[in-house]
Write a protein that binds this DNA or RNA. Structure first.
Length: 405
DNA sequence: AACTGATACAACCGCCATAGG
DNA sequence: TCCTATGGCGGTTGTATCAGT
């Protein structure tokens, strides 16, 4: 038998809270402060369990809650933190002011989990799975239906809360309501490449010698790996298999000393016609109407210092990326040590006959230091919350701060 | 217009950690 | 040290709402 319920449930109301109940709870807490949840319902005259009151307050009525949809920036933070600490929603929520763990959990489950796959860390002794069975993976689909967000309702009617429960909203004037589930792709790519903590000082890669179109400003450009790849503090992703033999896996098809990794994921839309005659693929969504959802995922490796024959230096970190349309993705070990790997995907969105691509990426510049060493000192990187077990809180805080720096 | 399936998200539930007696 | 109350967390469920048929 489990422990006794937190309160006597006979006669208590369950289910959705009415605006009247919200008013009562809100008035009570404003007058008496929060806490003492067990006695609160009785004192306030609510036929609710104290736990239910607490949840209602924390997740909905609290005045400091952020209104509106999760922004691309917030989404990125969620992705990053989830990649590092798993389903520790409260910890993740603590880094997103005004967001609740429940909200983030729901957002993850309904929006992100299907878009983002966490890839296995490749250890020295581990054999990579060569095929990932994506048939078993949920495929992101176009939103067909679903509830309209209550916050969206409030956005539409800023007086909603005042009308219904009598509290002030803090809906930002410029907040947007996204009812399609679509991600602001360009912004997200930009945010990802600009603000990702693991990619210190990176900037959006543009190739001024080949990319003249101003429309491509602030986009991420993928370059064939036979192109110049000496960039300072930039993100470079290589479609290494594009119309070439796959011997060109970049300068990194050699042994590396150590691999620790964290996957980054971001979503973008890709359509036909993004590949120009030079084989440069641009990730943006400008002017692309025929969009399919694809994911780009990358992992950042560190403790790598290598030079290729052209003198390219990959200092301290490497990144890999995969493009996938979630139909099929092959993972293969790459390099003698088997410690890193490339990803190929079927990109059915292309009409240029190239439907099987292999990508790799590099982040160049100084950056990841010892933080990742201890962050990933556990071998278990599959989103297991035990990842952080045993790490003292200061370290954990430092990690979070670093991840978000 | 009615029906159906998909979706978002609010709310519930059980378990765990911790404080305090 | 044990026991209990309580708060908190994460997994899961229920349902309102919507788009497609």
């Amino acid at each position: 038998m489990g422990r006794a319920p937190c309160c006597e449930k006979v006669g208590l109301k369950k289910g959705r809270w009415t605006s009247e109940e919200d008013k009562i709870l809100l008035n009570y807490i404003q007058a008496n402060g929060e806490g003492s949840w067990r006695s609160l319902p009785k004192n306030a005259g609510l036929l609710r369990c104290g736990k239910s009151c607490r949840l209602r307050w924390i997740n909905y009525l609290r005045g400091d809650l952020k209104r509106g949809n999760i922004s691309a920036e917030e989404e990125l933070i969620i992705i990053k933190l989830h990649a590092s600490m798993g389903n520790r929603w409260s910890v993740i929520a603590s880094q997103l002011p005004g967001r609740t763990d429940n909200e983030i959990k729901n957002y993850w489950n309904s929006h992100l989990s299907r878009k983002i796959h966490t890839f296995r860390r490749v250890s020295r002794t581990e054999t990579l799975p060569t095929i990932m069975d994506l048939a078993k993976v949920d495929i992101p689909v176009k939103r067909r239906g679903g509830r309209t967000s209550r916050w969206a309702m409030m956005k539409k009617d800023k007086k909603y809360i005042q009308k219904h429960v009598g509290i002030q909203t803090t809906i930002p004037k410029d907040s947007t309501v996204n009812t399609t589930g679509a991600i602001p792709t360009t912004a997200l790519v930009k945010e990802t490449t600009l603000s990702t903590a693991m990619i210190d000082d990176c900037m959006v890669l543009d190739r001024p010698d080949q990319v003249k179109d101003k429309e491509r400003d602030n986009s991420l450009v993928l370059c064939p790996d036979d192109q110049e790849r000496k960039y300072e503090n930039q993100v470079v992703l290589f479609p290494s298999g594009h119309e070439k033999e796959t011997e060109t896996l970049g300068p990194y098809d050699h042994e590396v000393d150590d691999i620790d990794g964290v996957w980054l994921g971001f979503d973008y839309n890709m359509s036909n016609g993004l590949m120009d005659s030079n084989g440069i693929l641009t990730l943006n969504d400008k002017g692309n109407e025929n969009l399919d959802n694809h994911n780009v995922m990358g992992t950042i490796h560190h403790d790598v210092e290598e030079k290729d024959s052209t003198g390219f230096v990959c200092a301290n970190k490497m990144a890999m990326a995969a493009i996938e349309d979630l139909e099929s993705v092959n993972y293969s070990s790459n390099g003698e040590s088997g410690e890193w790997y490339s990803c190929s995907s079927m990109a059915s969105g292309f009409d240029d006959g190239v439907d099987n691509w292999e990508w790799e990426g590099v982040v160049q510049g100084n950056g990841i230091s010892g933080m990742l060493s201890w962050l990933w000192e556990s071998d278990n990187l599959e989103g297991d919350s035990s990842n952080l077990a045993g790490i003292d809180p200061d370290k954990q805080d430092a990690m979070v701060a670093w991840l978000l720096s």
